[in-house]
């Protein structure tokens, strides 16, 4: 239904981009869909000792060892549960493959540039540096995450920092 109109809009508005929308608790987030490689269930994660708690460990993605990050822990969400709905979005950023655990993936949306508002300069757990903006969609607000910046940042401890 609305997908059709959105697709049509996308064709007209070259500024618009497609986003994968996922939920963390009751909040909705979006990431650039071009960074997403696949979506899979959460299973079989091997814990890594002495790693930050939001790094759940590593898993085997068809022979490739991929770290799994739980954004719910990173964003200090109250309820962190692993059940059937829990999915892992496998993203490809900065030549690395990383899996992020989210509560669910809702849909793929096209947002035009005028639908994206700049992110306000606040945020304690999630610095505005890691946001591309806020997407407003009628009564919904999508937090658009710059997943590449976030995952390669020092505080995520996923990447060996060169400067150290």
């Amino acid at each position: 239904m609305s997908d059709m109109t959105q697709a049509a809009e996308a064709a007209i508005d070259t500024q618009s981009q497609e986003y994968l929308v996922f939920s963390l608790g009751s909040e909705e987030y979006a990431v650039d869909i071009l960074k997403v490689q696949e979506i899979r269930g959460y299973e079989n994660v091997t814990r890594i000792a002495n790693a930050p708690d939001f790094i759940k460990g590593v898993t085997n993605l068809r022979g490739v060892i991929v770290p799994i990050v739980d954004l719910r822990i990173k964003f200090n969400l109250d309820k962190v549960e692993y059940e059937g709905q829990t999915v892992v979005i496998v993203v490809n950023v900065a030549d690395r493959i990383v899996g992020i655990v989210v509560d669910g993936v809702s849909d793929v949306m096209t947002l035009s540039s005028d639908q994206i508002k700049p992110a306000p300069e606040f945020g304690v757990t999630l610095s505005a540096d890691f946001l591309s903006g806020l997407g407003s969609l009628e009564d919904r607000m999508l937090v658009i995450v710059d997943i590449e910046k976030l995952l390669t940042s020092e505080e995520m401890a996923l990447v060996e920092q060169q400067t150290k």
Binding site: I48, N60, G63, V64, I65, P67, L158, E160
Partner: peptide, 18 residues
Amino acid sequence: KNLETNYRKVPGISAATI
């Protein structure tokens, strides 16, 4: 399997396997 391809060096761990 190299851990550092997608992650980083982990103290006490040399690599991973499946």
